[in-house]
Design a protein around this nucleic acid. Structure first.
Length: 304
RNA sequence: GGGCGUGUGGCUGAGCAGCAAAGGCAACAGACUGUAAAUCUGUCGGGGUUUCCCCUUCGUAGGUGCAAGUCCUACCGCGCCCA
């Protein structure tokens, strides 16, 4: 029995390819997947939405080279997609790929999504309660914090008391379940995971972001995408702005809130900020093996 | 040439007698329990024995005051108006 379990544990593998925005994850993952008989699961919180293509840097059919991709276009952009949904669907996708006898590659830059799989965190089964949220949104951080302290002292201890999002969510969970927020409970997966990070320094990344932005802006491609999302798909400006970065600033530009140049600058600097935040997240995870190029990644995978 | 206005930290911009000088941006670091491209935090003139002390700063040079980005004078730069 024990032996059997062990056998199982070592036989299921998962490769994670991660890195900051514009670091070249897509290109590398395709090459690796082809080489090692893999299929790809996207771990990107924007690419899950239908219609968010150019601005989210979604891979095209042609670029896929026949490698199946999962978790792309699985959500309606009018609705919110969450980590929990991601976790569920990604797990299913991993299983599917394993059954086919192929190697699953989890590829993306959304740290929280990746963590939900890699650490198998258990998320409390509480859906957002928008009525409650709109009520609580009127309260100050201090009031929310005091409220949470009464409801769940343990969670109040380690929560960021100045972050309304987190406070709200914690209160929502307690009120809905009638129980404290569960501990972060990392149920170890039976997966044997290799995490590969693409290393790029800030300057290089800024250049790559700049180049990519120019390409997306060419022939008004990205502007038209956002325009269509608003005019044809009927997505509100507010919702488009919520998507952040390219969607946020192109939407603002189309509304006449900012001019073209300002739009470009904002996308550039905000993307650089975003890349930094991603790195702050990834740096915490000491299991990640950082590589400079494809060759190094291939070598790592060979050994593995 | 005359009149009015303006010059503040990397940028922007408040302050108009008690200031190492609000806010914003940028920069740097960090957090992360179902919105995560989101949300949030800290540092940000220099140095130290760092809940406190010292030094150097608000165009330049003088002056008044216990005390001056803050008031006065002159000069320099910039802006607008009149000639």
């Amino acid at each position: 029995m024990k032996n059997n379990y062990k056998l199982q544990a070592t036989s299921y593998k998962l490769i994670v390819i991660l890195g900051p925005t514009a670091s070249g994850k897509t290109g590398m993952s395709i090459k690796l997947a082809k080489k090692f008989n893999g299929e790809i699961i996207s771990a990107d919180s924007r690419q899950v939405y239908k219609g968010l293509d150019i601005g989210s840097g979604k891979i095209t059919k042609k670029e896929m080279w026949g490698i199946p991709h999962y978790l792309l276009d699985v959500a309606n952009p009018k609705k919110r997609f969450s980590v929990a949904q991601f976790q569920k669907q990604a797990k299913q996708a991993i299983k599917k790929i394993q059954i086919k006898g192929k190697l699953p590659f989890l590829v993306g830059g959304t740290g929280f999504y990746i963590q939900s799989i890699v650490d198998g965190i258990v998320l409390p089964e509480v859906k957002p309660n928008w009525v409650l949220r709109s009520k609580l949104e009127k309260k100050s951080n201090e009031e929310l914090f005091i409220m949470l302290k009464k409801l769940d002292p343990r969670r109040a201890q380690n929560i960021d008391s100045k972050n309304p999002h987190r406070l709200l969510r914690a209160i929502e969970i307690v009120l809905s379940t009638g129980k404290p927020v569960p501990q972060i409970n990392q149920s170890p997966t039976s997966l044997e995971i290799l995490q590969i990070g693409i290393k790029k320094d800030g300057k290089e990344l800024a250049k790559l972001i700049n180049k990519r932005l120019a390409a997306r802006l060419k022939n008004n491609a990205m502007i038209n995408e956002v325009k269509n999302l608003h005019d044809k798909t009927k997505i509100s400006w507010k919702r488009l702005e919520e998507f952040g970065l390219e969607y946020k600033f192109v939407a603002q530009y189309l509304q006449g809130k900012i001019d073209y140049k300002e739009m470009q600058q904002k996308i550039q600097t905000e993307s650089e900020h975003f890349a930094k935040r991603q790195m702050t997240w990834f740096k915490r995870d000491k299991r990640i093996k950082w590589v400079d190029n494809y060759k190094q990644a291939e070598k790592l995978l060979r050994k593995y």
